[in-house]
Design a protein around this nucleic acid. Structure first.
Lengths: 188, 188
DNA sequence: GGTATAGTACCGTCCGGACGGTACAGGAGC
DNA sequence: GCTCCTGTACCGTCCGGACGGTACTATACC
C-alpha cells in the first residue's frame, strides 16, 4: 500500500484513490473532485491522466481484469496445469490476498462500473464467461467444478458487502476445502 | 407504523420504477426525477410517498428483505423443517423465480443502496448474517452447508452482472444439484 | 343541509450546490 | 522549447429537496 517505489505511477495512485472512495463512501460518491483530492492532485491533474469519468472507470476495470489474469496465470503455473489445477487456480485467484482486508480491489471496480453505467461491463462479462467456459465447462465434471468456483465467488460477494458469514479461522478452512476438493475432482 | 391500505399500489409502483431504472441505466442514474417519470407521477408526488432519496432506498431494501423472508418461510414450511430443509429453503429462496428473467429485484435493490450509501446496508448485513448463523453454523456440517449456500449466492451474483456462465438447462441442473446435495447432508 | 376544518394524494416550480467537463496558464526537466 | 504534468477558474447542467398550490374526500359542528 505504501509508496516504496517513487513511481507507483500517478495513474495507479488515482485508481487506488478511486477504489478507496467506492469502498468507504459508495460508488455514488465517486466524483472526479473527490478522486483528485484523495489522490492528492488537482482535478485538472486527474483529467490529464483520465480524460473523462468513463475513462477512469474503464481504467479501474482494466486494471482489475489484468490483475486477475496475472494472478490466475501465476497460480496455474505454480500448480503445473491440468483441469483440476485450473479450477484451483481460479478459486485461489478469486479469494486471493486478504482474508479480512479492505481492498477487494476488483469487486469494487465492478461495483463502480455497474453503478455508473452497466454498459461498461460488456468486456468483463466476456472475460468472466471465457473463464467459466475454459475452466468449468471443458472439465470432465463441469457442474461440480462450476459449483466450487461459484462458491468462491459467493464468499467474495460477502466480502464486498462487508458480511462476515464465517469467522476468520472457519473462512480459511472453507477456502482450503474448496481448493482441496477441486484437487480431487474426477477425470485426473 | 405500518398501517397502509388505501394506496399500497402507488408506493409499489414507485419501487418498481426504481428497480427498472437501476437495471437498465445503472444505480448512478437513479434520480428522483427519473423515478417519478418512470412511475408516471410528478417529482412532488414521489416525494410525498418517500420523503427523501434515502427513504426511497430504504423502501427498496425493506421490500426486498421482507420478500426474501417470506419466500424462505414458505419454502421451509413446504419442506417440513429440519436442518437440511433450512439449507434447501435458503438456496431455493436465493435462486427463486426467474431462470433468465431481468428483475433480480432484490439484488438490484442492494446495488442501488450500496451505490448511494453503503451505510444503508447495516440492516441487510445483520439479516444475512443471521441467516448464515441460523442455517449454516448450527448445522451438523457447517462448512458443507455454508458452501452450498454460497454457491447459490455466486450463481445469483452472475445473474446480477448479466453473466450467463451456464446455459439455461445446465443452470437448472446445477440448481437442482445444490438442492439435492443439501438434502443428503450428514446429521439427519 | 350547509359550511367549516382536516387529511390525503398529488403537482409544478424554484434554488443552492455539486457535478462533469473545458480552457488555459504555468512549471519542471530534458 | 517542447513534453509532461499541475493548478485555477469557470461553464452549463442536473440533482435533491423545499415549498406552495390544487383537487378531492371525510368527518364535525351547527
Amino acid at each position: 500500500m505504501e509508496a516504496e517505489q517513487p513511481d507507483r505511477s500517478a495513474r495507479d495512485r488515482v485508481l487506488d484513490a478511486a477504489i478507496r472512495i467506492v469502498g468507504e463512501s459508495g460508488a455514488g460518491r465517486l466524483t472526479l473532485e473527490a478522486v483528485a483530492e484523495a489522490a492528492g492532485i488537482s482535478k485538472g491533474g486527474l483529467l490529464y491522466h483520465f480524460r473523462s469519468k468513463e475513462a477512469l472507470l474503464l481504467g479501474l476495470l482494466e486494471r482489475h481484469l489484468a490483475g486477475f489474469r496475472e494472478r490466475y496465470t501465476a497460480e496455474l503455473e505454480r500448480r503445473g496445469g491440468g483441469q483440476n489445477a485450473r479450477v484451483q487456480a481460479y478459486i485461489q485467484s478469486v479469494l486471493a490476498g486478504d482474508t479480512l482486508g479492505l481492498d477487494h480491489d476488483g469487486s469494487l471496480s465492478l461495483l463502480a462500473a455497474v453503478a455508473n453505467d452497466p454498459a461498461l461491463l460488456v468486456e468483463v462479462r466476456r472475460q468472466v464467461q471465457d473463464f467459466y467456459q475454459e475452466i468449468g465447462l471443458t472439465h470432465p465434471e463441469p457442474l461440480r467444478a462450476t459449483r466450487l468456483m461459484l462458491a468462491a465467488e459467493g464468499l467474495m460477494l460477502m466480502d464486498i458487502f462487508g458480511i462476515s458469514v464465517l469467522e476468520p479461522a472457519q473462512r480459511q478452512k472453507l477456502h482450503e476445502e474448496l481448493l482441496a476438493e477441486a484437487g480431487v475432482l474426477g477425470g485426473e
